[in-house]
Design a protein around this nucleic acid. Structure first.
Lengths: 193, 193
DNA sequence: TGCATTTCTTACCATAGATCAAGAGAGATT
DNA sequence: AATCTCTCTTGATCTATGGTAAGAAATGCA
């Protein structure tokens, strides 16, 4: 129970082994079935979720009815609309489970407790935020400069595991192209190899 | 001298008026003329710069020799390759002055001093990081979902002032389109109004 | 097992934006 | 004033990706 979560606290926040035993009293795991929404536009995201097991997507719906996936989150990832949680503002996004999953919802209370148990919580937190920023910058750079084919190749290099669990049309949505285009890109790659 | 910088510390980091008087001893302003590079790929970004006056761009150069602007920074903005500063890793980007400018270079030393003078430095810093993340997410969402015309309209709404100081081809580069396309987008907007 | 739904592929055509080439203004520099 | 350089515009054409439609394959469900 919580193996991933406790391991995460030990690795990323340097919580000591004995203190980790306190965790089960603080949090409660939540079973989510595929297709369930954790968040819809207009709602304020109340939790940052730790993904103990399963897979989620965070996406926006544009005026013309098209979905655009901004993030996937699988095991050992934190999942939330960071802006909505942090600034307590209504979200513009959907968060949906795309596999049967197990989550640890975390609120401010729990973060405070973790902060007590972590020798340097705010530094560790800062590292996570910077990692997030680095990742977003790389994605922007790719969207500005790379073709659909190149973006796809980067995607499978970066997420070789995810690629097998996600329907292809969601990969297309993440890359900012249509499923048809992705299908053609894949055909090209297969033939020119 | 430093008016913008000291004002920034008061507003964003809640440094008290009397303490602000200590600042001039800690930092030194730097005059940069248009066209000067603060950073080139391969170098480790040593400072976070506060822009006291002027304008800069942060851009990447792709394999095929094309520039892609990731950020502009004008008065009262912090400027750096955050990843390179924070993780002490070689940068992939250029930072270039596009006006004659005045900067306040900040290193870890100075951040420590500011942290001493700020009642809740790490919280304030976290707010800045979250603002950055919010901004990057919005940009990704736009790149995924919006046409060149729409992205341009968002740009001028978001940066009405910048738009007047930046050559059009840089705006195009920021938007991820060619200068020719931007010219046509602008013609369309002018005629259909 | 069979039916229904979703996903993926393919073919054909449409379109946004890129590329290439030329020319017009607008500053700068001499 | 004349020349240069840089920026912007425009027209013609090209290309990557989108849209539509249909069928095939895979998956889920009864």
């Amino acid at each position: 129970m919580f193996q991933n979560f406790t391991q995460y606290l030990i690795e990323k926040f340097h919580v000591k082994e004995p203190d980790v035993a306190l965790i089960p009293e603080l949090v409660q795991e939540k079973y989510i079935s595929s297709g369930t929404f954790l968040l819809k536009p207009g709602e304020i995201c109340q939790h940052t979720f730790f993904v103990e097991k399963g897979l989620f997507r965070l996406y926006s719906l544009s005026e013309n009815g098209k979905e655009h996936i901004l993030q996937f989150a699988s095991e050992n990832w934190l999942l939330s609309d960071r802006d909505s949680v942090f600034f307590k503002e209504p979200s513009k996004f959907y968060i949906e489970a795309i596999e049967d999953s197990i989550l640890i919802p975390m609120d401010e209370e729990i973060f405070r407790k973790i902060a007590e148990l972590s020798p340097n919580f705010s530094k560790n937190n800062e590292i996570l935020l910077h990692n997030h920023i680095r990742h977003l910058n790389q994605r922007i750079n790719l969207l500005l400069s790379a073709s659909a084919k190149k973006r796809y190749m980067e995607f499978i290099k970066l997420y070789p595991d995810l690629q097998l669990r996600i329907p292809q049309w969601m990969v297309a949505s993440y890359l900012g192209i249509t499923p048809e285009s992705l299908s053609r890109v894949r055909r090209d790659l297969a033939s020119n190899t």
